[in-house]
Computed example of a mutant assay.
Amino acid sequence: MTHHILAGVTFAVMAVAFTQVSNQAAAKSTISVTSNQALTTDGITRNYLTTGSAPLYSKVPVYKSAKVVTKAAALKTLATTADAGQTYFRGYRAAQTSNGDWYLKVVSFDKTYRGWIYVGTNDPTTDSTAVSGGLKTAETFKEQPLPTYFANTPVYFTTPKASTLTDTAPDYTQYKVGRNLNSTTEFYKDPLTVTKIGTKQNNRDANATYYYVTDSAHPQVNGWVKQSDVATSPAN
Rank of each mutant, 00 (worst) to 15 (best):
Met1Ser: 15
Met1Thr: 15
Thr2Asn: 12
His3Glu: 05
Leu6Asn: 15
Ala7Asp: 14
Gly8Tyr: 13
Val13Phe: 10
Ser22Glu: 07
Ala25Ser: 09
Ala26Phe: 05
Ser29Arg: 03
Thr30Pro: 02
Ile31Ser: 12
Val33Glu: 00
Asn36Ser: 05
Thr41Phe: 03
Gly43Asp: 13
Ile44His: 05
Thr50Val: 08
Thr50Ser: 07
Thr51Met: 09
Gly52Leu: 10
Pro55Ile: 09
Tyr57Arg: 02
Val60Phe: 07
Val62Asp: 04
Tyr63His: 11
Ser65His: 12
Ser65Phe: 13
Ser65Glu: 11
Ser65Met: 13
Ala66Trp: 14
Ala66Ser: 12
Lys67Gly: 10
Val68Gln: 02
Val69Tyr: 12
Ala72Ile: 02
Ala72Thr: 07
Leu75Tyr: 15
Lys76Gln: 09
Ala79Asn: 08
Ala79Pro: 00
Thr80His: 10
Thr80Cys: 05
Thr81Phe: 00
Ala82Pro: 01
Asp83Phe: 12
Asp83Lys: 06
Asp83Thr: 08
Gln86Trp: 08
Thr87Ala: 06
Tyr88Cys: 13
Tyr92Ile: 04
Tyr92Thr: 06
Arg93Asn: 03
Ala94Glu: 06
Asp101Thr: 14
Trp102Arg: 03
Lys105Glu: 09
Val106Phe: 04
Ser108Cys: 14
Ser108Ala: 15
Ser108His: 12
Ile117Thr: 10
Val119Tyr: 15
Thr121Met: 11
Asp123His: 06
Pro124Thr: 02
Pro124Trp: 04
Pro124Val: 06
Thr125Phe: 10
Asp127Val: 07
Ser128Leu: 08
Ala130Arg: 01
Val131Arg: 03
Val131Cys: 07
Gly134His: 15
Lys136Gln: 15
Thr137Met: 13
Ala138Arg: 13
Lys142Asn: 12
Leu146Gly: 00
Pro147Ser: 05
Thr148Cys: 13
Tyr149Thr: 06
Phe150Ala: 01
Asn152Glu: 01
Thr153Ile: 07
Tyr156Asn: 05
Thr158Trp: 00
Pro160Gly: 11
Ala162Thr: 13
Ala162Asn: 14
Ser163Leu: 07
Ser163Cys: 05
Thr164Pro: 04
Thr166Glu: 11
Thr168Ser: 06
Pro170Ser: 09
Tyr172Asn: 14
Tyr172Trp: 06
Gln174Ser: 06
Gln174Ile: 06
Leu181Trp: 02
Ser183Met: 10
Tyr188Lys: 10
Leu192Ile: 14
Val194His: 04
Val194Arg: 01
Thr195Ile: 14
Thr195Pro: 05
Lys196Gln: 12
Ile197Thr: 08
Asn202Thr: 15
Asn202Phe: 01
Arg204Met: 07
Arg204Thr: 14
Ala206Asp: 10
Asn207Trp: 00
Tyr211Arg: 14
Val213Cys: 08
Thr214Gln: 08
Asp215Lys: 07
Ala217Arg: 02
His218Leu: 14
Pro219Thr: 08
Pro219Phe: 06
Gln220Ser: 04
Gly223Gln: 07
Trp224Phe: 11
Gln227Leu: 03
Ala231Trp: 11
Asn236Leu: 03
Asn236Ser: 05
